[in-house]
């Protein structure tokens, strides 16, 4: 299980990386390597060129721009978990990262890698969908911003050209009386989820003023439960309200594969949505 031969490049700037991509047709960008390296080892991908982003200055790190977190694409998952600002402004992120692989894979794996790999069950895309994050992509003609809703084009296919790289993610944080819940079911700790649910709630005057529910693993891309979100707004948080909203998840179109049926995914979607909403209601007040 050794990779097929390739030529290795280690650019030091994003411009250089983009230029290399433009220059070499069959190339693959290497970030944390926690998804790409297995595929290289198994020869599922056999690029002629590997462009390593690990030496590039300025595309890793977390910056707090008022209520938006600016996260460099090469920020390691470990650093997202250890960062004080994220813990304060978007505590759902470090909590959910606990479910992403294992601490050894998080020491290398990056947020950008996860968003570009775009596994349907991955936690970070599911979270970014909940936040309506904006992604910054750099290509030969400069940078462009992509709202997360437009990011996934198809199964594991992000809206990024062969000569572009993802450089940053902006996460607009929620403020006020905010609660968050992240729940997933995987067979074993660290496995990709069968279904994952991220829920954000904001409450004003005892009523839900804003809700975001994002489901991973049910569709080829993270799925926002618009109907349930709409149903929640204006209601007082409570077990029955949550159950009713979560029931809407049972009706979604869920994929099936050799291991899991769509009915089972629907069942998990409903169950876990309810649990995520309850969790979110339980940590309202200050903790957000």
């Amino acid at each position: 299980m050794k990779p097929a031969p390739f030529t290795y490049h280690d650019p030091t700037t994003a411009d250089e990386a983009v230029a290399l991509l433009a220059q070499h047709e069959d190339s693959k960008v290497l970030a944390g390597g926690q998804s790409l390296m297995p595929m290289l080892n198994m020869r599922f991908v056999v690029p002629d060129h590997v462009i390593d982003l690990n030496g590039i200055e300025g595309i890793a790190g977390i910056r707090d721009a008022r209520d938006t977190l600016e996260i460099g694409a090469m920020t390691r998952q470990r650093d997202l978990m250890r960062d004080g600002t994220i813990a304060e402004k978007a505590p759902i992120i470090p909590g959910a990262l606990n479910w992403v692989g294992h601490f050894q894979t998080r020491n290398r794996g990056t947020i950008g890698g996860s968003l570009c790999h775009l596994d349907p069950a991955a936690e970070l895309p599911c979270l970014m969908a909940a936040y309506d994050a904006t992604l910054t992509v750099q290509g030969p003609d400069g940078a462009r911003a992509v709202p997360f809703a437009e990011w996934p084009l198809a199964y594991m296919m992000p809206s990024i050209g062969p000569d572009e790289i993802l450089t940053a993610v902006s996460v607009p944080c929620w403020s006020g009386n905010v609660g968050h819940g992240f729940v997933e079911y995987a067979r074993r700790h660290g496995d990709f989820a069968i279904v994952a649910v991220a829920a954000l709630l904001a409450v004003e005057g005892g009523k839900i003023s804003r809700a975001a529910i994002s489901l991973g693993g049910v569709d080829v891309r993270p799925l926002r439960l618009d109907a349930a979100e709409a149903a929640l707004v204006g209601e007082a948080p409570g077990a029955d309200t949550f159950r009713a909203a979560a029931e809407l998840a049972r009706g979604i179109d869920a994929m099936s594969d050799a291991y899991v049926s769509s009915e089972y995914r629907q069942r998990l979607a409903a169950t876990l949505t309810e649990r995520a909403l309850n969790a979110a209601a339980n940590n309202l007040n200050g903790s957000a």
Partner: peptide, 15 residues
Amino acid sequence: LDGEAVRSCLMLAVQ
């Protein structure tokens, strides 16, 4: 790697 646990099968030696 610099004190942090990593998979040596998922890194290139050159890295």
